[in-house]
Design a protein around this nucleic acid. Structure first.
Length: 853
RNA sequence: GCCCCUGUGGCGGAAUGGUAGACGCGCUCGACUCAAAAUCGAGUUCCUAACCGGAGUGUCCGUUCGAGUCGGACCAGGGGCACCA
């Protein structure tokens, strides 16, 4: 290595990785007595190859883990595999491979790729969620929650492909059609298992306040997702007299329920109501449909399309007039028509709303379309009760008008007045509702954790007895027909009822993979054979001090994991409130997408540019340039780091991923710049290997090093790796320029330590070359002297009217008058002022003087 | 449609309301070399031949002695929307 004078990663990387392994450097010892810290990156789905997003994510975590270890912490930094999921079944269907074999070989390949990058991981704790040793414990935890009453069964809608006769994931619904069959997707109800996350809505919302080390935007998104809102829940009676009552469907509805309950967050606008709208699934709508074929047809039509909110909410707003008349609770003679509307959701509130077109945009559009009255009941200061409503609704603040006893009140006052009156008169109550819905965990798929329940015709659903866990996935399954192979596997499906011993059948649904990822961080901390985790051992490591992963998980995964942790606490299994005390959401690594002429996604290495720079495929056929999106297997826009690691070495790739782009920001992948990282690696190596020695002090360099130690530490602590990198570049330049001295020799040694978390192989090689004992990984992070951070000369900016006119060097600590005098003495200032005297002078000590002329 | 975020040189980006463009990439010129690679040095926002100066952080408006930073409106891009993970 020293022969060539160059650092050779092909040799060094392997060498040091083996050494770290041999010395068990990264095995976390629960009993070491050192202060503990838990650094965790979101575990990957084993899609086959790692991509640049993984490299970025795991490099960040690795830098922090190595830095903390050098600071003297006992660090838990584990890795595993979120191994269940749809792609394995897709591979099975497309290529006839078994999901298990496919997944295992992917894990093996990706583990090798991660090891090649030299991450400081405790591989002794590796887990894959598809291991029975993992999912069996998950089944046990589910039964714990079931016994605690936190699990129930209810009907819920899924995307149904009527041709393939199978349930589709939202991702498999493209423009309302099944991805394979191309058939129009329908919404169909299925009985499924739910976890009562709504029981924890308040806790999960209030708990956000204690999460000081979480990004504000994530907390905001979670709060909005939980969506607590206060309002009034009240009943409209359905009028029992009038011509409409002779309609058979109105009779049927009246027989089913003579009233409809609604929820509103705007009770103040109650006199602006022009209609009542109910969900197609509402019992009243169902009753109407039983006697009215048109209503039935409308409801059936509204079931077309997928279940995703994006799809439902962008659908055209449609309504069906039922003929039912709702009685206004404050004006007994006032009747509101009842509509069935496709935009009202049964899942939120009561599945019924009253429409106030003047002050709600959706109601406004509905009223405009169906020619319903638009009545102002809130007026801003520049409006009165007769100001017409313009082209859109006015949802804002103001004074109540056209509203009897509410006139003149503010929105807030009116809300309280209406709620009080409703409660006094007994037709409504104050109510808090949540946007958050319970968590449906049933998936009609094979490659997941079997739900440990047995359905018995006599006893109903019965839990699988603990001594029969784990419920193993059967191996003998085929994927030649669409649908869940567990359903067709008679031998596996048939079971005796644990309660009555009679014939029964296993639950063939498996868990949502978010269940698997809701507790893996606990299993990392403690992995006994006979139970999911040991509470006291897990509590020694938890909560995770720093969790790092993509922003795309800002809501679902993080909320489910928070819920699971709190549920475990409630049932007395784990005394932890929040699973992740620190969270960092890294930006995504994005890349261009391309589609070939046949519409299939093309991988980046399948696309070339023609003479005009237009994309063409390997055969020269023009390709379409798609959007720049996060790297994902499905869009085929991933970039495999392996050839780049092979060419430049692990450290250059790690360094490059940390440079330049702020870690929270999205990064559009480009290879331009990796050369610079490789060059930096060699620069550091030259400093360390060609170390000239030297005598005497270099106080200026020592100060410079001191400043770098402070700045790099601060940057890494706050995960601003790009700033740490810039600091290190500056430090290297400074050392290179400094003449030999004892301070320079020390500076090189400090530099190697500072670089170690980011470029660990290089650092070890340098450390050895400097003749130091032991490993850099286990050496101590350098300290700095805060007193040396203060410079005694400062540069003063001199502005006139806020524009920079001069800069002056001045001793630190000038008072205002001195600074002002100095600034006014400047030639450039005098020339600009041209004899005029300043009207005002603003002095920011040691920074700037602004002369207002 | 709803919620959240982002927007600064040719590129990635830096900048507690106080000198916009640190640092890196790229490019240009120079040194070293027979030559190249590597390395080292200088330069590099735009306009103006140059100086002086002027403009400039997606757009418009505002707050302020002073705005990339704070507020409002808008435009563009990205993420999430409960069965992708």
């Amino acid at each position: 290595m020293k022969d060539s004078g160059r650092f050779d990663p092909a040799v060094a990387d392997v060498r040091w990785q083996r050494r770290w392994d041999d010395e068990r450097c990264f095995i976390a010892d629960t009993d070491s007595g050192k202060p503990k810290t838990y650094v965790l990156e979101m575990f990957p789905y084993p899609s086959g190859r790692i991509h640049m997003g993984h490299v970025r994510n795991y490099t960040m975590g690795d830098v922090l883990a190595r830095y903390r270890r050098m600071q003297g912490f006992e660090v838990l930094h584990p890795m595993g595999w979120d191994a269940f999921g749809m792609p394995a079944e897709n591979a099975a269907m497309e290529r006839g491979v078994h999901p298990d074999g496919w997944t295992r070989s992917n894990i093996a390949a990706m583990r090798d790729q991660l090891k090649r990058l030299g991450f400081a991981l405790d591989w002794s704790r590796e887990i894959a969620t598809c291991d029975p040793e993992y999912y069996g414990h998950e089944q046990a935890l589910f039964l714990d929650l079931y016994e605690a009453g936190l699990v129930y069964r209810k009907e819920s809608e899924v995307n149904w492909d009527p041709v393939d006769m199978t349930v589709l994931a939202n991702e498999q619904v493209i423009d309302g059609k099944g991805w394979r069959s191309g058939a129009e997707v329908e919404r169909r109800k299925l009985s499924q298992w739910f976890l009562k996350i709504t029981d924890f809505a308040d806790e999960l919302l209030d708990g956000l306040e204690g999460l000081g080390d979480w990004p504000e935007k994530v907390k905001l998104m979670q709060a909005n997702w939980i969506g607590r809102s206060d309002g009034l829940r009240f009943r409209f009676e359905i009028a029992g007299e009038g011509a409409e009552c002779d309609y058979p469907w109105v009779k049927a509805a009246l027989a089913a329920a003579p009233e409809v309950e609604v929820f509103t967050t705007r009770p103040d606008t109650i006199f602006g109501a022009s209609f009542v709208a109910i969900a197609p699934d509402h019992p009243l709508a169902q009753a109407v449909a039983s006697e009215n074929p048109d209503a039935a047809a409308f409801i059936a039509e509204s079931k077309a399309g997928g279940t995703s909110a994006a799809e439902i909410e962008t659908q055209e707003k449609r309504g069906f007039l039922t003929g039912l008349q709702a009685v206004h609770p404050l004006e007994p003679d006032w009747r509101l028509p009842v509509w069935i509307a496709n935009f009202v959701l049964m899942e939120y509130g009561t599945g019924a709303v009253f429409g106030v077109p003047a002050h709600d945009q959706r109601d406004f559009e509905f009223a405009t379309k169906f020619d319903l009255p638009i009545r102002r009941v809130v007026a801003r200061a520049d409006q009165d009760k007769d100001t017409p409503i313009g082209d859109e609704a006015e949802p804002g603040e103001g004074v109540i008008v056209n509203s009897r006893f509410l006139d003149g009140l503010s929105v807030d006052e009116a809300q309280q007045a209406v709620i009080r009156r409703a409660e006094d008169e007994g037709w409504g109550t104050r109510k808090t509702v949540y946007r958050l819905r319970d968590w449906g965990v049933s998936r009609q798929r094979y490659w997941g954790t079997p739900i440990p329940m047995i359905h018995c015709e006599r006893c109903g659903p019965v839990a699988v007895p603990r001594d029969q866990l784990p419920v193993l996935l059967p191996d003998d399954v085929s994927f030649d027909i669409p649908g869940n192979p567990l359903d067709r596997n008679e031998a596996w499906r048939n079971a005796a009822c644990p309660q009555c011993g009679g014939d029964a059948r296993r639950e063939t649904d498996t868990f949502d993979t978010f269940v698997d990822s809701s507790w893996y961080f606990i299993r990392f901390a403690s992995q006994p054979i006979d139970k999911p985790f040991d509470s006291s051992e897990a509590e020694q490591w938890l909560p995770v001090d720093q969790y790092i992963g993509g922003v795309e998980h800002a809501i679902l995964h993080l909320l489910y994991a928070r819920f699971w942790t709190r549920a475990l606490k409630r049932i007395g299994r784990l005394d932890i409130d929040e699973p992740f005390s620190g969270l960092f959401t890294q930006g995504m690594v994005t890349h261009e997408t391309f589609r070939g002429a046949d519409g299939r996604w093309l991988a980046p290495d399948e696309v070339r540019k023609d003479d005009q720079g237009n994309p063409i495929d390997a055969a020269g056929v023009p390709a379409t340039r798609g959007r720049v999106e996060k790297m994902s297997k499905s869009k085929r826009n991933t970039v495999d780091p392996e050839p780049i690691v092979a060419k430049y070495g692990a450290d250059a790739v790690r360094w490059f991923m940390l440079s330049d782009s702020p870690p929270e920001r999205d990064l559009e992948w480009s290879e331009a710049g990796i050369e610079g990282a490789a060059r930096f690696v060699q620069r550091v190596w030259r400093l360390a290997s060609g170390s000239a020695g030297g005598e005497g002090e270099d106080a200026a360099l020592a100060r410079r090093v001191n400043r770098a130690v402070a700045a790099v530490g601060e940057a890494v602590d706050s995960l601003q790796f790009n700033k740490a990198v810039a600091q290190l570049y500056e430090l290297v330049s400074a050392i290179e320029k400094a003449p030999p001295s004892s301070d320079r020799t020390k500076a090189v040694r400090t530099l190697v330590k500072l670089v170690a978390p980011m470029a660990p192989h290089l650092a070890e090689e340098c450390w050895e070359s400097l003749g130091e004992d032991g490993l850099v990984v286990t050496s101590e992070w350098p300290k700095f002297d805060p007193a040396l951070l203060v410079e005694d000369e400062v540069t003063l900016a001199v502005q006139i009217n806020g524009k920079l006119r001069d800069t002056l060097t001045a001793p630190r600590g000038l008072d205002r008058a001195e600074a002002e005098a100095l600034a006014l003495a400047s030639d450039k200032v005098q020339r600009q002022l041209a004899g005029a005297s300043p009207r005002k002078v603003i002095v920011v000590p040691d920074r700037l003087v602004n002369i207002v002329a």
